[in-house]
């Protein structure tokens, strides 16, 4: 079989993007190689590190484990849609202030994951840290468990927790 291409329209950071992609193209590669939005990172390409985390219709997912053609009509938010160097989002500012990154490669995924995580908290999605039957509270351990889908090999983990607590308005 030769290559199969399909036309797909994905709204990325508020802009409708008409793509003509190989069916094999992942959402991550569509962002990075086709749309030149290289903020979403490829750390493992198998859903094992979280560096590719983006928000699809407001929900955080691993963009490496999804095909671009599966997202026709979806609204995708990448790190580029969160804020810019001159106009940082509060979560980005908190990461900067708390030094919640070192090499920076996992950072866009951590930040997108934080945004998704805070929404999940609001929605009452449980984690294995949440006591049975209780509504989750954003404790340090809840943050740690809920951010465990994003590996940081530089290990800025304590700083990431501090940044998230800061931005979520929890006393650090």
């Amino acid at each position: 079989m030769g290559d199969v291409r399909l036309k797909t329209t994905i709204t990325v950071n508020g802009e409708p993007c008409a793509l003509d992609v190989d069916t094999r193209t992942t959402l991550l590669d569509a962002l990075r190689e086709h749309l030149k939005l290289t903020g979403s990172k490829k750390g493992c390409d198998h859903g094992q590190c979280g560096a590719c985390t983006v928000l699809v219709n407001g929900v955080r997912i691993n963009s490496c484990l999804s095909l671009a053609v599966m997202h026709d009509g979806d609204a995708v938010t990448t790190i580029e849609g969160v804020g810019t160097p001159d106009n940082l989002h509060p979560v980005q500012k908190a990461f900067l202030t708390h030094d919640a990154y070192q090499c920076g490669y996992c950072t866009p995924g951590q930040i997108c994951s934080t945004l998704g995580m805070l929404k999940e908290m609001e929605a009452g999605v449980p984690s294995q840290e949440t006591p049975a039957g209780a509504r989750p509270v954003l404790s340090d351990d809840e943050i740690r468990e809920r951010m465990s889908g994003n590996i940081c090999r530089c290990s800025a983990y304590p700083q990431i927790v501090a940044a998230i607590k800061d931005v979520a308005g929890v006393a650090a």
Binding site: G47, G50, G116, M117, E120, A132, G133, S148, G149
Partner: peptide, 27 residues
């Protein structure tokens, strides 16, 4: 996160959140 699952089948909710990562479970 389903209230009926949490109320009546908590073992199912607990098992699900023991697997993968939040990003994987969302997808």
């Amino acid at each position: 996160a389903d209230p009926q699952v949490l109320a009546r089948y908590p073992v199912l909710s607990q098992a699900i959140v023991a697997g993968g990562s939040p990003q994987l479970r969302n997808k």
